[in-house]
Write a protein that binds this DNA or RNA. Sequence first.
DNA 1: TTAGACTTTCATAAAAATGTCATACTTAGT
DNA 2: ACTAAGTATGACATTTTTATGAAAGTCTAA
Lengths: 229, 229
Amino acid sequence: MSRKVLVVDDEAPIREMLVFVLEQNGFQAIEAEDYDSAIEAMVEPYPDMVLLDWMLPGGSGIQIAKKFKQSEYTRQIPIIMLTARGEEEDKVRGLEVGADDYVTKPFSPKELMARIKAVIRRVSPTSLEEAIEVHGLRLDPISHRVTSEGSELDMGPTEFRLLHFFMTHPERVYSREQLLDHVWGTNVYVEDRTVDVHIRRLRKAIAPLGHDRLVQTVRGAGYRFSSKL
Amino acid sequence: MSRKVLVVDDEAPIREMLVFVLEQNGFQAIEAEDYDSAIEAMVEPYPDMVLLDWMLPGGSGIQIAKKFKQSEYTRQIPIIMLTARGEEEDKVRGLEVGADDYVTKPFSPKELMARIKAVIRRVSPTSLEEAIEVHGLRLDPISHRVTSEGSELDMGPTEFRLLHFFMTHPERVYSREQLLDHVWGTNVYVEDRTVDVHIRRLRKAIAPLGHDRLVQTVRGAGYRFSSKL
DNA sequence: TTAGACTTTCATAAAAATGTCATACTTAGT
DNA sequence: ACTAAGTATGACATTTTTATGAAAGTCTAA
């Protein structure tokens, strides 16, 4: 089940940026630019969370928050306020009205997602980090397990992260350097060729049911995870 | 494969946001937060583009732009300025100093990427990572695949680059020498006739569905990729 | 500290790609 | 039809890239 986030902001660029970040992180975004459209989104299926710009024209941000907190069915939906830098007063008022947290503009994607995940985790602890499945190969970040046809596949931490990265970024070549950046982390001094070894171990780990075919070598370019064989 | 973007901004959240958007779009980002670190990034391998915050402390944004436009080797690297809303004056000055375009904060990811792609396209027309399709022959640089009617076509790295070049420069004859320059790279000592062999390999690779007709010999001149048969 | 699990690097095998040749074909002009 | 120049093609020695096994180094939990 993908988590729906309602994004309320009157400035289109900021709204699009929020939506982009959310979608890249596996969330589904619903947009609203003002009081009316925000209220319209207050129907089933309800969003799992609301990202609310505090500085909506006419001070309607606070109205929206109140509305959400009034209704029986939307009361427990967490709200994160977006505030301009230094508007401490607003933050206080926002929290009074029922906002669960706030993020100061400008925000980094990392911070934004961290707060969103934290807030959602508080409400529905198990719903985050859904499992991904491709061709019967299933990776579940919550239980930190990889299974295939019910049987668990054993692999090291690096292989797990590598597979997780691949499964969340399929159909795309990555050079060894890029994989090092994304899976090992930036500025880590490790040989390019080390990736080969982990690719091999990953393949070996998922080979029993033939899933090693999903991890493909692209000569001269790198590796790719693809369900197209 | 050009896709390194130098991001210069003193505010970490904004910088992170830019990096996030860039990386999600397949670019590689290099970060710099001030004049010094920006200048440090002015070495090989040079970035293919610079995203420069105009409002760096001490007005050093303009200094950085000047520095880039002064050096022989970095002069042609496009620069996109990030300006605050409404600073029309700055935009003008920026364009005078040599900036190629500007983006107003706050920006949407779509707009940002559109401008970046436009600017890079202007400089190196073939570097962008969009799938191209001609007559059912499809080349996707992202997944690094060539397909025809759903089935994948297998070819070596050189043939792939050659086809990519052809598809991005259709309806135009290229001499063997020109092809060597564009596909193999400048100052590479390789026989002219070697091109023939790779043309043949490319044709063989895409022949199964009859696409070899797209790669045409122009006697006495070279080769041409054309959908007009 | 020590066993055990991981990682990284290295050496070597295996596979694939590349650049050249020699030779067979084509084409245009005579 | 014949020739000369340009092009296509198959073969192959070499060079590059990957795959893989194993050694050496790290880290962690008991």
